[in-house]
Write a protein that binds this DNA or RNA. Structure first.
Lengths: 200, 200
DNA sequence: GCACAAACAGACAGGCTTGACTGTTTGTTT
DNA sequence: AAACAAACAGTCAAGCCTGTCTGTTTGTGC
């Protein structure tokens, strides 16, 4: 598409993609900062610097926008995890846990948390969130197994890795209220020791 | 008060208490069933069988009602945990974990979850939730230590109990999306074994 | 029995949110 | 260049939610 014909061009497909991206990113930001409840379409369009008309053009309904944002968020989380994982040396359990702990304290996780809880009582959202969350869950699991150098063929190992991921999820949830970093650190310190013994 | 004077009496203090209780219970039910976002004062009053006027009389603002419901919910959670704990034999780790796992799958936990997430971005709610959550957190910790027969003077034991509680919180969160009971069971099976070894 | 206050009932207004709708600009196609 | 379609802009009405307000019933104190 967009055959060159001499003059400078700003393909509308590109503009469209950019606008949609800004809207989805603004949605994720709103989720993380003001929560699902206060995330209105008006607030999103203001934040994205997009007119309400343009917003309604690309996403006819709020559901459509949020569902698209869910997919976008999944990609972002996947990318952030992959990037963070690359910086972690293999077989250093405590470092792996630190990486996971940092993730659940990040804004993207908070946005995901908002969506989880909202999806619990919203069928449309649930249908969008469930499969994507399952995907990123599996991806994170695989990644963690690799970094820990764990042997999943041994009985119990798979469950311990799952427990580790559920633990950090729980820590992320606790972090929303009044959990301090120090407490998380101590818990993960001990968990790393226990995990190392159990996986040995 | 309310000196008997022959005829049957329905003290207004009693009526008042009953109405307030029904409103707070209805609030918790709404939180668990439709979520914080869709929990409107109108819905609550309908569900409680209380007129809007009476509702506004007892709780002038929505915040007042929700804050009162938080306190109520804390009491309910505390009572449910204490009751469930009484049915668990001491030193049977798997049974203790089952009890905790059941709790995080219950409606009261879901209501608490809604409040947690809402409180993250709502200062008023946060001020009400934080201290109470801390209280019930400590209570649950003490209770778990007792049931496990754990010796907290030994290094790492305290952190392992905390990790256990955060783990079940994470499992409760996962349960809202698409987590099946079987998966939870396997994870807790394995964690019970690991915990027993670590505490031995 | 009477005055008073608390519990209760329901209508009403203001504000916010959502999505429909009309009009304008900008890129694409022939 | 002209016709067309997509992107963009902003207004408007319907609906819901909250909290105020007025009026009614019921228990309490004198």
């Amino acid at each position: 598409m967009a055959r060159v014909s001499g003059t400078l061009r700003v393909p509308q497909e590109e503009r469209s993609r950019a606008t949609r991206a800004r809207l989805m990113e603004a949605t994720v930001e709103c989720l993380a900062e003001v929560g699902f409840g206060r995330t209105s379409t008006t607030l999103i369009s203001e934040r994205a610097g997009v007119s309400r008309g343009a917003q309604l053009h690309h996403f006819p309904t709020k559901d459509a926008l949020v569902v698209a944002a869910v997919a976008h968020l999944t990609d972002v989380r996947g990318a952030e995890l992959a990037t963070a994982a690359r910086a972690v040396p293999v077989r250093r359990t405590r470092d792996v846990l630190r990486m996971l702990g940092d993730h659940v304290a990040s804004p993207v996780f908070m946005a995901a948390l908002e969506l989880w809880v909202a999806a619990r009582t919203d069928p449309t959202l649930h249908a969008a969130v469930e499969p994507l969350e399952q995907r990123i869950g599996r991806q994170t699991h695989r990644l963690t197994v690799e970094l820990l150098g764990a042997d999943e063929s041994r009985p119990g190992v798979r469950e311990l890795v799952q427990a580790t991921l559920d633990l950090v999820r729980g820590l992320g949830l606790a972090a929303t209220i009044g959990d301090d970093t120090a407490r998380r650190g101590r818990i993960l310190d001990q968990w790393a020791r226990t995990l190392d013994e159990a996986l040995a």
